[in-house]
Write a protein that binds this DNA or RNA. Structure first.
Lengths: 103, 103
DNA sequence: TCGCATACCTCGAATTCCTATGCATAGGAT
DNA sequence: ATCCTATGCATAGGAATTCGAGGTATGCGA
């Protein structure tokens, strides 16, 4: 199950924590949500490419365990977007929670 | 600004409160979220029709102030879906909040 | 050497939402 | 009387996001 629209923000959050590569980012999101969120690769990579084209993340090649990987790091612009997205998440989620109540 | 995927649940919540018609449902969502959520009519009506085709709401014609309106009420099946949706909202929103933190 | 986890990528379909547009009525203002 | 605004319902076209399915390749352990 997933939450439409939150993926770019979750990616930025992961990269604000540490530069990483696609596969690792997806794992982090899944682990940190205790398996609740689980974005597929067919969703993740296009989202990553889009963030790069928007200048919110930068990529570079890196080698780990003898394998070449594509790493991403957040840019200054990306950090600004992340801050805005966090604030927006708070506002919207509070609004929905307010309506749906505790029930 | 809006939250993808929450509209059907918000509609069901409104109708669980009281049978209503499209325009009024949209107003209720906007008011109860203090203007944060604001679904457009072009989004609302198709969503309402879909809920009806799924048997989660029923519609009937009603007259108020001399005008004919299409009213909707939630069905038993709709109430079950609402309960599930509430639980799912809690789980997903908590997962995202857990990751995005308080920052 | 075979299988598996890792790692990256693309495509088509489905869903959701927005904007724009159309039609129609009630009530108040001019 | 006429016009404007809010109300009320609806559809069409397009953008964005996600999923499922598929393809390619490497390192490592059995």
């Amino acid at each position: 199950m997933n939450f439409k629209g939150t993926l770019p923000t979750l990616i930025l959050e992961a990269l604000a924590h540490e530069p990483s590569h696609g596969y690792r980012i997806a794992q982090r999101i899944k682990e940190r949500s205790r398996g609740v969120l689980d974005f597929k690769e067919g969703t993740l990579y296009p989202a990553l490419h889009k963030l790069e084209s928007e200048g919110l993340v930068e990529s570079y090649e890196g080698v780990e365990n003898g394998r070449t990987r594509r790493y991403y790091r957040i840019t200054k612009s990306g950090k600004g977007t992340l801050a805005k997205d966090r604030a927006e998440w708070r506002e919207l989620s509070q609004a929905v929670t307010m309506i749906l109540g505790e029930a």
